[in-house]
Each structure stands twice: as C-alpha cells, then as structure tokens.
C-alpha cells in the first residue's frame, strides 16, 4: 500500500498556482472550476466542471492539472469532468471579480444568472467606471464574455456574462 505523501490542502495550494488559460489573471480555483479533490491509495483525483459545455480550455486545464501536480510529486493524478451542479458565475470569488476588473474585463454583475442574465443591465466600464456603456455584441472572444463599449472613455471592453 502506498501512503500518499500529500494531503488535500496541499493539493489545493498547488491547484491555486494554475491560471485559467484564457484569462490568466485568475486561477482555476478562483473561477470555481475545481469541485473536489479525492485522495486515495490509487492516487489523486481532481474533479472539475466546465464553465461552458464547449469550453475549449478544458483540455488544456486537464493537462495543466496533471502536469503541475505530478511535477510536485502528486502522482498518479486523474482529472474527472462533471456537469452537476452546473457551473455558475456565483462560484467566482470576489477576489477573482476584482482581478478581472483590474485586467479590463467587467466582472459578472449579479450573484446569479438565468433570468437576470437576460434583462438589460448597466455594466460599468472596467477602465473608467462610467455607467455610460453599451452592448456591442452578446458574444465575445470566448463563450463566457460579451462585447461592450464605453461611451465616456470610448474604450471597448469585455463583460464576463452572468451564467
């Protein structure tokens, strides 16, 4: 029997060093993508959930988790993808939202999504803070973002949609 030389807390600490491949300013824990870590005699299993069904970053995140953990001696590592409960921007930490804003991406406005997501909202500009902004496109450079423009500072910016 192999006795693991690491505990759950240490694994989470290592996971916190892995950035989101598409928004490198936040890590995968802050994004709320890591659901659990299960340590057994067979190794370490990391359970993650995708932000969007077709999120193309999932493959890279899976590879990053395995290589980062195994480089730190957490081996063998497996990554399991689950859909339930469905990911929501509710799981994004306040720290992550602040980091997004500082990075130039307006963070999700509401704590929850669904119907609120669909209503018209004022999204403050992450650059100048003005509320004189307008939606340019519901779909942005990635599935999780929409495109906006600020009419005060005239800068375009992305908004991380409530989901």
């Amino acid at each position: 029997m192999v006795i693991p030389q690491y505990n759950k807390e240490q694994v989470f600490d290592i996971l916190a060093t892995i950035p989101d491949p598409e928004i490198p300013v936040v890590n995968i824990l802050e994004m709320g993508m890591v659901k659990d870590v299960i340590i057994s005699n067979d190794g370490c299993e990391v359970i993650i959930t995708p932000t969007y069904s077709g999120c193309p970053a999932v493959g890279m995140i899976t590879a990053d988790i395995r290589s980062t953990l195994e480089a730190k001696g957490v081996a063998p590592t497996t990554v399991k993808l689950v859909y339930d409960p469905a990911w929501t921007t509710d799981w994004m930490s306040d720290v992550a939202k602040k980091k997004l804003n500082d990075y130039g991406i307006a963070p999700p406005l509401h704590s929850s999504c669904n119907n609120e997501m669909l209503s018209k909202n004022t999204i403050p500009c992450p650059h100048c803070g003005s509320e004189r902004t307008q939606l340019l496109s519901r779909f942005g450079s990635t599935a999780c973002k929409a495109l906006y423009r600020c009419d005060a500072c005239l800068e375009p910016f992305e908004y991380f949609k409530c989901h």
Partner: peptide, 9 residues
C-alpha cells in the same frame, strides 16, 4: 460561439 456550445453538448 453558439456552435461551440452545441459541440460541447
């Protein structure tokens, strides 16, 4: 983007 959601599904 919609195509991407659909292929994920």
């Amino acid at each position: 983007n919609m195509a991407l959601d659909l292929i994920g599904r």
